[in-house]
Design a protein around this nucleic acid. Sequence first.
DNA 1: CTGTTTATAGAATATAATTCTAGAATATTG
DNA 2: CAATATTCTAGAATTATATTCTATAAACAG
Lengths: 208, 208
Amino acid sequence: MEPAFERAFPGTRKATKRHVLSCALACFDERGFDAVTIDDIRQQSGASTGTIYHHFGNKEGLAAAIYLAALDDQQAGFEAAMQTTHGVREAIAAWVEVYIGWVVANPRLARFMFQSRRSVAAGAAKDDLKGRNDKRYGALQTFLRNGVEAGVVRALPAEIYASLLIGQSENYCRAWLSGRVNTSPLEHVGIFADAAWRSIAFVADNNG
Amino acid sequence: MEPAFERAFPGTRKATKRHVLSCALACFDERGFDAVTIDDIRQQSGASTGTIYHHFGNKEGLAAAIYLAALDDQQAGFEAAMQTTHGVREAIAAWVEVYIGWVVANPRLARFMFQSRRSVAAGAAKDDLKGRNDKRYGALQTFLRNGVEAGVVRALPAEIYASLLIGQSENYCRAWLSGRVNTSPLEHVGIFADAAWRSIAFVADNNG
DNA sequence: CTGTTTATAGAATATAATTCTAGAATATTG
DNA sequence: CAATATTCTAGAATTATATTCTATAAACAG
């Protein structure tokens, strides 16, 4: 059972709900969202059709519940890490570490998130998602602003920092989750943290 | 009509096939793959159910045809660019430019590729995909090897160069295609090319 | 307790994917 | 050019799947 589900739906009353989510995730991860039928999830979980629809409304609702639980679990990790961090370079390294650490600890959830971001963003949960996205990089932004003022971080269009910092790690994690590369991203975490820093650091002699 | 479809299915005989693909892509882009029915595509294209199934086998086959046509179109751009390029830094900049240029020129195809990579990779077209992936970075790898030998590029695990070079651009392109950011990636192409270079360049005084 | 809400069940219905059979268009061959 | 094979188109029939509906049971609040 994923910790993310226990965080999102705690308590004895929600045990069935969590169990269905966990079984659904397992099915989706094995065969892909489209290929899984509600009946597959029913058989796998032992719950009835009615129970599944009662808790999640429809198949899309099931996906949204998994996605949002995963996002909140990630977010808790980021916020905890930002509180024990001092300085922008350390903050960036911590961010990359937490990100990669979460992916490696939750590969099925991570795969699911990469796959279904768009369909969740387009569906009924879009407002939930929007609110969460707004604060996702909140804690990191403060560090970046301070870094720019201190002259150690380049002043760049605000909208591209996130891509410069996490894009490389994300790309590698996707490749690893899909089996295109074999070495765990954890083994390269130092390289990715360093590359993130290089991408935004103010370096006078970098001939670019 | 996307140039990618004309490249993949040229000639008068294939006009219907191309037309169906183009209509299907439009439907998928508007409402998402899952939400589109074969009947939607039938109505949109004017073709019959039989025609659609004759050409593509099933709904997944339709997705695979779109995906592979797009991939080949991208690949042609990369190969052309690598032939008029000298030196590793220039090659990396060209790569980033071609990548971003293609996404901006083919937003619907790009969105579709990001969405459906996994389902295509898991389906019947997985072997086609595997072959293409193997040679995707072929031309660039030669430049990188030379760069390492010349001491201007860091020696890193081979499997992470692709992520370091294109991850940031890809992340921003995804954000742009989904509307999370508004500024065209073309406006930041210089920043992304520079960040790619910084990430892999050998720089003695970079305190990392 | 007793009413109320929440949860579970599975049959019935609606929706959509896929298959099938027939016929038309196009290409190939002698 | 005629005969034959192949590819393409069509839409009805079938199968698979998502969703709704009605009934019961369990948990909870007063």
